[in-house]
Design a binder for these strands. Structure first.
Lengths: 344, 344
DNA sequence: CTGTTAGCGCCTTCAT
DNA sequence: ATGAAGGCGCTAACAG
């Protein structure tokens, strides 16, 4: 019995009604609006069940211009930050009969355009972007302004786009406060790329928190990573330890950079945390298993995914609804990579 | 200019031909068969380019009954084994204009059925399963026998399904040989779930390798994990160290179980590798950053993804082609979790 | 409340 | 080699 051939027509025939009526009977919306006799509804549903009917989403999409599909752009699935977020997104979308179409861009604007236009071609109903830069022209270039969009873990400069993220500045402040409470005063920052809101927000959060603690932030206490990678972190940390400041603690823009710091410290024969404390951001899985276990700013990744999906679904329903910008609170997870400053 | 409205008709009109002709001109197949004047082809392609036309995949699917979509079932995206495989799958699929629809099943047969029928409803052209058990009835139950299917990292009992995996037995043999060369004789195995081919294959590989090395495998040197999780590994390892065998080395069914062993060893005050060496399987990312860095059997995850995608695409093209079963070679990555046996 | 009609955008006979 | 016609399965507009 080939089920792919069970069509609405078959159901209608079996129920003794016109296909259109069957459609209305099976469609939540029209049924609820009382557009069809509850008697017929029963008969149609019965027939549908008997035939094991399931509507063809392709045909439906063609008519309704809705694909029940959301494009999700990320830099790289392999970055452990993303899987839990994606999981959240997919779980929430599934609840509403939607699916996610993943696209990896590797932070390459060309790939980005390629993937985006692919998504438009596939008629996605909405877009979730974890790839937005602070000034983000790609969307307008590709003429995708009309598509519902939500950002994850990013905000754009004018906050004109709905987004779900954590409060970067607050998170970094927790890290700084923690280090200060351990007696550190020479605290450095490995800043992420400044064209990303996370990079910029964490840097300015760092500066503010330092000032609030009455500590100076010289130019030699900040290095800029090209990207959020282990290699970049290593490079930055090398500069930091080579410099005259001799920081006793480093706040890294994220966990990757922090791991990079581990490596640079090892190279220079410095012990973490005995000589230098390190704090990361994101609390990716297994950071508790690193050596030493990484102190990091955590935010609820899976929940972020859920919220993002929720938001994009709302926007798909009501594209002109006000632009929500949602911040989920970070928390500091203290582990073995931070310790009291060594008394000199 | 709203591009979603550029239709084949528009292109045809601009080129001064009938839509059908335009269709033939733009379609690889028909064009190659010389069914259309090369002159008209040029005109049509020109027009298409000018209008920035891209065919509506939905409409096309309705007609051709091809969704250009592949369902990919995995237990949990959050397991670090999968992201690189998925990345490989998506990259290869994208090359051929296909996309992956991810489904997380959490190893729950009910969820599995749910996700699978969702995929069928969405008219996926093929299925990639990382969730297959050795005896896998779900497919026939759901009447999906007609759909092209490829397994990843799994084989089924009768090898009736095409698959891409690594040679589990060979990998484990490498681990055992390595430990033997370090002087270990009391080697234990934390076996994965036996209903999974990886669990079973690695166990039998372990037994064979031990016998080949002239070592005994008593029942007390093997424990069975309920699933491939850290918690299960801890539980198993606890049994192992409590027992009279006092193994000096443990071969874990995968990295998760190995990490679980780390934890149990810590609890009992045993040092790894000084007291007990541990070997994992999969070499998930960051295993080099664990404490101690994990010795593990690696296989090329990304490449596996590529091959899987390749295979499913082939099957979609030619569903009756012979059933390929592809094994990619494993290699042993030696790190800090294995050391010479302590001389008693 | 239900049936009729029409068409979403494309492809594929069947003629010409 | 091209045009005409029909239909994939569904739903929306309009009658009745």
């Amino acid at each position: 019995m080939n089920e792919r051939s069970v069509t609405l027509r078959d159901v209608a025939k079996r129920a003794g009604v016109h296909p259109a009526t069957a459609s209305r009977a099976l469609n939540e919306e029209t049924r609820a609006r009382g557009l069809v006799n509850s008697d017929t509804v029963a008969r149609v549903m019965q027939a549908a069940r008997e035939l094991n009917y399931s509507p063809d989403p392709v045909a439906r999409s063609l008519k309704t211009r809705r694909s029940h599909t959301v494009g999700v752009l990320i830099p790289d699935l392999t970055n452990p930050l993303f899987p839990p977020i994606i999981r959240g997104i997919e779980d929430r979308l599934a609840q509403s009969g939607y699916v996610a179409l993943l696209g990896n861009t590797d932070n390459d604007p060309d790939r980005e355009k390629l993937v985006l236009s692919g998504m438009r071609t596939r008629r996605v109903d909405g877009l979730v972007l974890a790839t937005a830069r602070r000034r983000y022209s790609v969307l307008s270039e590709l003429n995708m302004g009309d598509l519902p969009i939500v950002l994850v873990n990013r905000v754009v400069e004018d906050r004109a786009l709905p987004s779900v993220a954590t409060d970067d500045a607050a998170g970094i402040a927790m890290a700084v406060t923690h280090l200060v409470s351990l007696g550190h005063t020479r605290i450095a920052h490995v800043a992420g790329p400044q064209e990303l809101s996370t990079g910029a927000g964490r840097l300015s959060g760092f500066i503010m928190a330092m000032e609030a603690a009455g500590l100076e932030v010289g130019s030699e206490s900040i290095t800029y990573a090209e990207n959020f990678s282990v290699a970049a972190g290593t490079k930055c940390c090398r500069e930091l330890v080579a410099h005259k400041l001799h920081p006793t603690a480093i706040v890294a823009g994220n966990d990757m950079l922090a791991i990079g710091c581990y490596q640079a410290l090892e190279e220079s024969g410095l012990k973490c945390p005995a000589d230098v404390s390190v704090v990361g951001f994101n609390d990716i899985s297994f950071s508790s298993r690193l050596s030493p276990p990484l102190t990091s700013v955590r935010f609820p990744h899976y929940q972020v995914g859920i919220e993002v999906a929720q938001l994009i679904l709302e926007r798909i329903q009501a594209p002109t609804a006000p632009t929500k910008v949602l911040f989920l609170p970070p928390e500091l997870v203290v582990r073995g990579s931070t310790a009291k400053v060594a008394t000199p």
